[in-house]
């Protein structure tokens, strides 16, 4: 596996990532429904107060909440040069 891949749960807030692979078959279909599929662009927006889990992602026009464990099943690759501005 390419060493540049990171788990979505370890992604940095405000940076864009491209989804490379969904590793858990059991939740892959549901994740696809919500917009996490190969080549879709995602960004970590917020972490839940206190426990920093679940995480809130921007995917397309939607905001999707995933638990850290769910986000761990998604491999992503950082997209250089694209930042999120508030």
């Amino acid at each position: 596996m390419d060493s540049n891949y990171v788990k979505l749960s370890n992604s940095e807030k405000g940076l864009f990532y491209r989804v490379v692979k969904l590793n858990d078959e059991k939740i892959a279909l549901r994740l696809t429904q919500l917009g996490f599929h190969e080549s879709s662009l995602v960004m970590l927006k917020r972490k839940a107060p206190i426990f920093k889990d679940p995480l809130l992602f921007q995917v397309g026009e939607s905001q999707i909440a995933l638990t850290r464990k769910e986000a761990e099943t998604i491999d992503v690759l950082e997209v250089q040069g694209e930042h999120y501005h508030e």
Binding site: I27, P54, Q63, I64, A65, T67, E70
Partner: peptide, 9 residues
């Protein structure tokens, strides 16, 4: 069914 959060806000 799997117990997940995975929801849209």
């Amino acid at each position: 069914s799997p117990s997940y959060l995975m929801m849209e806000l």
